[in-house]
Amino acid sequence: MARQRMISSDSSDTSSSQPVPAAKESVPDDSLRPSKLADMIGQRAVIERLDILVDAARKQAECLPHILFDGPPGLGKTTLATVLPKEMGVELTLASGASLSSPKEIMPYLTNLTDHGVLFIDEIHRLPKSVEEFLYTAMEDFRIDIVLGEGLGARTLSMPLKRFSLIGATTRSGMLSAPLRDRFQVREHLDFYELDELARIVSINARKLGVPIDETSTSELARRSRGTPRIANSLLFWVRNFAISRGDGTITLSITRQALEMQQVDIAGLDKQDRRYLETLVSVFGGGPRGIDAIAATMNIPSETLSEEVEPFLLREGFIIRTPQGRRATSKAIDHLGRSGPASPPGGGLF
């Protein structure tokens, strides 16, 4: 059984750095996350390739290759990173790219790794360049170079490391430097899930939670989950709580719709902010085109929030398109809002 740990980033004395318990994650992740590759639903091509890597590594008594997972949030990057060490029977050490601001802060993680252990760095694209460069020799030669002293008296000490596997997860693989990206022997991209896969996830996790649910309710939850298991699990927990509070604890289609209506998640998976964005673009700007800054100013929301949290789903589902002149609402968005086709105003904002 793999063990999980997190290492203190205080490198004032690396020899005395002690592992500390990993912070407990949210209940949905802890109770619903699969523990074996065979339990994973969706991403079948990725799972098949990873299964081959695990089988080959076990047969040759080697550590896993360095692996980079990329893709939108909530698709299972962290889950895969925690499942692989369990399959290998090795120790997992957790780190976050945002917390590793200098090479001295990653040294305890590297020097405390067990043989064939796995170091998982979440949001690895947030590592500064100095830390990325420090990882080069660790990933390739399983050693780190430490500079002792200053000036003319400085000398470099090469410290060997135990053989390990680095698993990185990122939502923005393009922000990784090419030299670091190329040092991952395996790169896997995770895609959004199909409705039938999400329905199976909801059904299985409802059984884990001990809550009765019918097939129509699982399909309803899957349809409103944006192709993302994390969202499906979050909605399932909310509907479960709603069923316990307002019903007899059984999740029916009626209970599901009432619960999601209270959360303001509609049949297409749009929430209140998504619809407000579309309402602003259609009602205020005549369907566009209009620049993101103009839309954000009208909604009184930072443009970064719209571009990073709201627009990706609307773009993927075809509710809006980007043009050189700005964002434009599609006929699908207009139909969803129950409006007639707007006439675009003259001009338009900058893209």
Rank of each mutant, 00 (worst) to 15 (best):
A22R: 14
K24S: 15
K24P: 13
E25Q: 10
P28T: 04
D29G: 00
D30C: 05
S31M: 13
L32K: 12
R33Q: 06
S35W: 04
S35V: 15
S35L: 11
L37D: 09
A38G: 12
A38N: 11
M40F: 09
M40L: 12
M40S: 04
G42C: 06
Q43Y: 04
R44W: 05
V46K: 03
I47K: 13
I47W: 01
I47Y: 02
E48W: 00
E48K: 10
D51T: 15
I52G: 07
V54L: 01
V54H: 02
V54W: 00
D55M: 08
D55K: 14
R58Y: 01
Q60P: 07
Q60I: 10
A61D: 14
A61S: 14
E62A: 10
E62R: 15
P65T: 09
P65F: 05
P65I: 08
H66K: 09
H66R: 07
H66T: 06
I67V: 14
I67G: 02
I67L: 06
L68C: 03
L68F: 02
D70E: 09
G71V: 00
G71K: 00
P72G: 01
P72T: 03
P73L: 07
G76C: 01
G76D: 02
K77Q: 01
T78R: 05
T79E: 05
L80T: 01
A81W: 00
T82E: 11
K86Y: 03
E87H: 04
G89H: 03
G89S: 08
E91Y: 09
E91A: 15
E91M: 15
L92Q: 06
T93E: 06
T93K: 07
T93Q: 12
L94F: 07
L94T: 10
A98H: 08
A98S: 13
A98G: 12
A98L: 10
A98Q: 10
A98M: 09
S99Y: 01
S99L: 06
L100V: 01
L100S: 04
S101Y: 00
S101R: 00
S101T: 00
S101A: 00
S102D: 04
P103C: 02
P103I: 02
K104C: 01
E105K: 13
M107H: 02
P108N: 08
Y109S: 15
Y109A: 15
L110G: 07
L110C: 07
L110D: 03
T111L: 13
T111F: 04
T111A: 09
T111H: 06
N112Y: 05
L113W: 05
D115H: 15
H116M: 15
G117P: 14
V118Q: 10
L119A: 07
F120S: 07
I121L: 09
I121D: 06
I121G: 06
D122V: 00
D122G: 02
D122K: 00
I124G: 03
H125R: 07
H125V: 01
H125F: 01
H125K: 03
L127F: 00
P128T: 04
K129R: 09
V131D: 01
E133Q: 10
E133Y: 02
F134G: 01
F134H: 02
L135P: 09
Y136D: 08
Y136C: 09
A138S: 13
M139C: 10
M139T: 11
E140R: 08
D141L: 09
R143M: 12
R143T: 08
I146M: 05
V147W: 04
V147I: 14
G149C: 11
G151D: 11
